[in-house]
């Protein structure tokens, strides 16, 4: 008997039953966008509101200036159509020399302040984790209330990876003291588009 068969033989359960307990979700009061922003900020991310998607390249330039970043910039193909002439980024590919990555979130979750990043040809996953600084574009219209709403995207498109990102990378592994920038980005900056 294979390991699979012997394990399953021990596990025989009843037929699948429908549970009757009602779904329980924490209340999300008020404007979900406002809650989303406050949760993200509580997780040590910074946020900036922009009126139009077209303003993103300028906002990226301003961020680089403010943080004195001179290194290469990588941008998700989903945002390749913007006027990037002032930044001169590489589109799509991202290696360890890139110090700023710009990506597009599929959605946001107000309950937790999480960005919902789907892997795909236009939204590579490396951009979310390799650079020191991570800038994420998210449309306020895409901000959902609950985790469940975001996870419906799994059923809908089943990407290789769905990353919920809530703030920059951190560790508390030395003396339970929180330190940002463990392995992923040291800083997370979110550009909210009306």
């Amino acid at each position: 008997m294979s390991a699979r068969d012997s394990i399953l033989a021990k596990l025989h359960g009843g037929p699948p039953v429908k549970r009757r307990d009602p779904p329980l979700r924490p209340a999300v009061h008020g404007d979900p966008v406002r809650l989303f922003v406050s949760r993200l900020q509580a997780a040590a991310a910074s946020c900036e509101h922009l009126a139009r998607l077209g303003q993103v390249p300028d906002a990226v330039s301003a961020y680089r200036c403010a943080h004195q970043l001179g290194g290469p910039v990588a941008v998700a193909p989903a945002l390749a159509g913007l006027a990037w002439s002032g930044v001169g980024p590489t589109i799509g590919s991202c290696d360890e020399n890139v110090d700023l990555g710009v990506s597009l979130a599929q959605a946001g979750v107000a309950e937790t302040g999480s960005l919902v990043m789907l892997s795909g040809p236009d939204t590579p996953t490396r951009l979310n984790f390799l650079p020191d600084h991570h800038l994420v574009v998210v449309h306020t219209a895409s901000i959902l209330r609950h985790l469940e709403d975001a996870l419906l995207l799994l059923d809908a498109s089943l990407p290789r990876a769905l990353n919920l990102i809530t703030g920059p990378s951190r560790t508390a592994d030395v003396e339970q003291t929180i330190q940002l920038g463990a392995h992923g980005p040291r800083a997370l900056h979110v550009l909210l588009i009306k």
Partner: peptide, 23 residues
């Protein structure tokens, strides 16, 4: 850890798709 959610909560479903740039 007392966090509402961790910095990264990720959902992996299989290897890279044909058109994906990474994974």
């Amino acid at each position: 850890t007392g966090q509402p959610i961790t910095a990264y909560t990720s959902f992996f479903s299989g290897p890279k798709r044909a058109e994906d740039l990474d994974g």
